[in-house]
Nucleic acid binder design. Structure first.
Lengths: 196, 196
DNA sequence: CGAAATCTCTAGTGGTCGCTACAGAAAGGA
DNA sequence: TCCTTTCTGTAGCGACCACTAGAGATTTCG
């Protein structure tokens, strides 16, 4: 009698709904995506959405987690797997050119663009912290290379990390302005010429 | 009797109002800035705003023109005044570090950030075209240097222009994420190392 | 079989959005 | 002075926002 699931079962796939919500938020951003947009693209009514996800904010939080695990962690993976910071950044920039322009989903990076120009400071701050956390990852990987002599000891790790982040954010913006994968790859290649 | 100005005179300074509106749009973006925000920060009521500027969209258009002439044309000026594309880009990136973090106004570039995540495709398109026009300016300046032998004849002008644009957009975003002028100057310096 | 639980939808809630009808105020022209 | 013109604020328009009360549908448990 401890078997769960009393009551009427949910009539839709929660994960598939999260996926539709992710696409909507990714395309139009947090604030410009209305509950009506979400219910329409998921194919359920508002009370079902609220029963399953709480409210718009909590749904977005879940979407961010799914996004991070599916599209957002390629930077972290590269930083962990590649032998040097330079190799990691090279891989990250090339993969960004590919992912940001993949026609299977909206262009650019959702963490970079979805909370720009929102009236909800909390949402903006949450994504800002994710971006800054990525900067810290870059920086510590650079410092590791400085410690092992791969990078000069007088390297400004913080500035170099910020440069990589700025190029990534710029590439995300450019992809949303219509840049192709090839164009972004050329940007990535050019950007790497500045690496010490 | 042909002398103009019949009727009750306007009770506020139209240019000063445009200035307040620019600050508001710059800070929060086009869509997230409501008419109530605008009337509150200007200090007039809605009908006065509509009588003076038409509607929200036309007001924004005027703001974009004012912004362009006051803060947005430093790139065009540098491209026209500096002897080489490289010198121009160097000056542009350094000035961007300064302007984007000037505490006298909101951070970053309004043309880059104000129309992200808006439901009005027209406004988004208008600013996108301004950004792409800037890219074309960069590209033609680069081509001029290629013609005079300052840059190698096999330079990918389009890609190089896009690289400069991406760095600029990245710097704008970083400034809105809290980067300081010094940090952006370090990014600019690093970015210039990739110049051919 | 009921009873309890949990989902479903319809049909709203109050609030804010961009925008405006309208009447009074303040100017010039005759 | 009175008329016309143009600006002023109050007050409110319909549309949309995020969100939910409430009733019915569909399931498991006893």
């Amino acid at each position: 009698m401890v078997t769960g699931q009393r009551g009427r079962p949910r009539s839709f796939d929660r994960d598939a709904a999260l996926d539709k919500a992710m696409t909507a938020f990714w395309q139009r951003g947090y604030e410009a995506t209305s509950i009506a947009d979400l219910t329409a693209s998921i194919g359920i009514s508002a009370p079902s959405l609220y029963a399953a996800f709480g409210d718009k904010r909590k749904l977005f939080d879940e979407v961010v987690v799914v996004y991070g695990s599916r599209y957002g962690d390629f930077a972290g993976v590269a930083l962990a797997e590649e032998p040097t910071a330079r190799a990691a950044v090279e891989r990250i920039l090339r993969e960004a050119a590919e992912v940001y322009t993949d026609p299977a989903h909206p262009p650019g990076c959702m963490v970079i663009s979805a909370a720009i120009n929102t009236t909800s400071d909390e949402v903006a701050q949450a994504l800002r912290e994710r971006r800054n956390a990525n900067l810290v990852l870059f920086e510590s990987r650079i410092r590791a290379d400085m410690a092992t002599g791969v990078l000069p000891a007088d390297t400004d790790a913080r500035a170099l990390a910020r440069y990589a982040g700025a190029v990534l954010q710029g590439m995300s913006q450019q992809s949303r302005d219509g840049a192709t994968r090839e164009e972004l790859e050329a940007v990535a290649e050019r950007a790497l010429l500045a690496w010490p």
